[in-house]
Design a protein around this nucleic acid. Structure first.
Length: 583
RNA sequence: GGUCCUGUGGUGCAGUUUGGAGUGCACGCCGCCCUGUCAAGGCGGAGGCCGCGGGUUCAAAUCCCGUCAGGACCGCCA
């Protein structure tokens, strides 16, 4: 028998039983006549006490950190005064009667305690050691809990789990594809899926009603703290369902995931905000609603202003930063620079001060403002002495976005604080006009326009709302979905608006359009990134901390050295030749 | 493609602003001592391409240029 118990499970009620435990040496304290070892496995650690004078136990002096031991002996209460209240197993210890060295270890390249903040590339090069550390153990087990809860929730809601292929046809839309050369058809390529989007719609045509998958998605775009080449999504699609049905199903899943990792926490109904309101109030289509500092419209206050910068603009908006009125001039100048860097023409700042007459503002632009304007903006922003007011003016959406970013810079709580889910609904169907004058899909070209806006599709496309929606958590975009177009005539109108000819559409998505000829059910779906939701649950700002083997920012894996060159023979087999590097 | 930050014994840092001997701290490692510690303790010791290349200088970890690696961000991510 290899073991009878696990180190972290040992408690006082095991006293007097003889146990066998296995694990790694987390720490050793060799006092000469007595040796204390903390033996660790996935469950935690327990103190093993070795008397090296006993026969066969002098090996205790040789034992080093990260050696793998099998220890046999009675569990006993620690002598009075030597208990360790900081350890769950701190009341007891194992008095070793036999110690087998199962594996020796060279000195490890970095400490495996959780006090040391080790360089990340070193951690990744020895990820198998990093994984032994408490934070990675905790994060990956948390991730497994979330996956399990999501899967159980989907199953309980009657969704059928179906795998879709990894080797698919490349479509030029969207993100850059990873491609895989075909051996049997040299010169041709598969693409790795950016998402199972088209397949899940085909599954609806195929009569599967409710599909889900925890799917691997791949996009060859530059990496970020919240973006890897490969990432996981809870992907789902529902037939005979509308937007509310999808939102309810996804809400159920994230409620279950939250409850799994935060026992007793019920996120309740997830609030909804329209895209328009999100931009207006938070300057973002993924608002972090854990804190206030909302954007306030000052258009009325400055309707008749003599201040040039506020005249004839789409919007004048302000935020009130509580208690920042004492900010240094250099900090305030930094905010102005930041606003300009974000594309604003400028940023007006005002310190709110108490005066004999009440409250007033102090700013380089005060002389351009009337008494009514100053009191009006103070009232509109509910500003109090000691506050800092920031005002931007210009085209509505970009102006809101600049203030929205400043709001985050100045007020965003740490990632570990709070869970604020939010639905953002009524996205515009198109996000703008391309260079060729044709509108650009905000979501993807299969998104159903809002029924009330359908008749403006051709006349005023940019005003058309879509039945697309995003799920946001603490200001992170978790995922998005939409009601899909299932009618060929509507799809055709969208394609022609987008400047996609019927021939081009047939070439790119012909199989989907063909499928829709044979009785496509109305359907809608969603997908959200599980790496991101797990990272937030884990209190990590970086999804690499919740991925077992992530890539670096340059897309490399320091552990396996991917990507790497391949043999000439492999290239020949695939009909490929590598070009010399650009000079 | 771009902006910014970082790179110093195995690890984490200080030293770089103002050039002057690889100087320092903590951990780890090796040896000896030690019967109750738990980040054990005491004594002793080993360990350096200061990321790499070039330049300036009598002299470069330090200044300049380039480059590589890691990170944050912009672009990009239907």
């Amino acid at each position: 028998m290899m073991r009878t118990h696990r180190p972290g499970e040992m408690r006082a009620d095991h006293v007097d039983s003889t146990v066998v435990v296995c694990g790694w040496v987390a720490n050793r304290r060799d006092h000469g006549g007595v040796i204390c070892i903390d033996l660790r496995d996935a469950t935690g650690s327990v103190q093993v006490v070795i008397d090296p004078a006993q026969p066969g136990l002098d090996v205790g002096h040789r034992v080093r950190t990260e050696w793998v031991l099998r220890v046999e002996g009675p569990v006993r209460l620690r002598p009075t005064g030597t208990e360790n209240a900081d350890m769950p197993t701190g009341l007891i210890e194992i008095g070793a009667t036999a110690v087998d060295v199962l594996s020796e270890s060279e000195p490890v390249p970095f400490p495996l305690d959780d006090r040391t903040d080790v360089d990340e590339s070193l951690r990744l090069r020895h990820r198998y050691l990093d994984l032994r550390r408490v934070p990675m153990q905790r994060n990956l087990r948390l991730r497994a809990e979330v996956n399990l809860a999501l899967r159980n929730s989907m199953a309980a809601q009657g969704f059928c789990e179906i795998e879709t292929p990894m080797l698919i046809a490349s479509t030029p839309e969207g993100a850059r594809d990873f491609v895989v050369p075909s051996r049997l058809k040299p010169g041709n390529f598969y693409a790795l899926p950016q998402s199972p989007q088209l397949f899940k719609q085909l599954l609806m045509v195929g009569g599967f009603d409710r599909y889900f998958q925890i799917a691997r998605c791949l996009r060859d775009e530059d990496l970020r703290a919240d973006r890897q080449f490969e990432f996981m999504q809870l992907d789902l699609e529902m037939s005979f369902a509308d937007q509310d049905d999808v939102l309810a199903a996804v809400t159920h899943a994230v409620q279950a995931a939250t409850a799994a990792v935060r026992p007793g926490v019920d996120i309740g109904e997830v609030p909804r905000i329209t895209w328009h309101d999100a931009i207006d109030r938070y300057g973002s289509d993924k608002p972090d609603i854990r804190f206030g500092m909302e954007l306030v419209d000052l258009g009325e206050v400055f309707a008749a202003t003599n201040f040039r910068a506020f005249q004839g603009v789409g919007a004048v908006k302000g935020i009130c930063v509580r208690g920042e009125g004492g900010a240094s001039r250099s900090k305030v100048d930094g905010l102005v620079d930041r606003a300009k860097q974000l594309g604003a023409a400028g940023l007006v700042w005002m310190r709110v001060r108490a005066t004999d007459a009440g409250v007033d503002v102090e700013s380089p632009v005060t002389k351009f403002l009337s008494d009514a304007e100053r009191s009006g903006l103070i009232a509109a922003l509910d500003a109090a002495p000691g506050d800092l007011v920031l005002i931007a003016a210009g085209e509505r959406v970009p102006t809101c976005q600049v203030l929205g970013q400043l709001r985050l810079d100045l007020g965003r709580p740490p990632v570990t604080e709070g869970l604020a889910f939010l639905w953002v609904v009524d996205f515009p169907l198109f996000e703008g006009l391309g260079d060729d004058g044709a509108p650009i899909s905000a979501h993807h070209p299969f998104t159903m326009p809002h029924p009330d806006d359908l008749d403006r599709l051709e006349s005023d496309p940019l005003s058309v709302r879509s039945q697309a929606y995003d799920l946001v958590l603490n200001g992170w975009e978790l995922g998005s979905g939409s009601v899909r177009i299932h009618r060929p005539d509507v799809q055709q109108r969208i394609f022609s608006l987008l400047g996609i000819t019927p021939e081009a559409a047939q070439g790119k998505f012909g199989f989907l359009l063909d499928a829709f000829k044979y009785g496509a059910p109305p359907h809608a779906g969603f997908a959200f990134g599980t790496d991101r939701i797990v990272a937030i649950f884990a209190g990590e700002e970086n999804i690499r901390e919740v991925i077992a083997f992530p890539k670096t920012q340059s897309g490399a894996d320091p552990l396996t050295n991917a990507p790497s060159a391949i043999d000439e023979r492999q290239l020949t087999e695939l009909g490929l030749r590598v070009l010399p590097p650009k000079a």
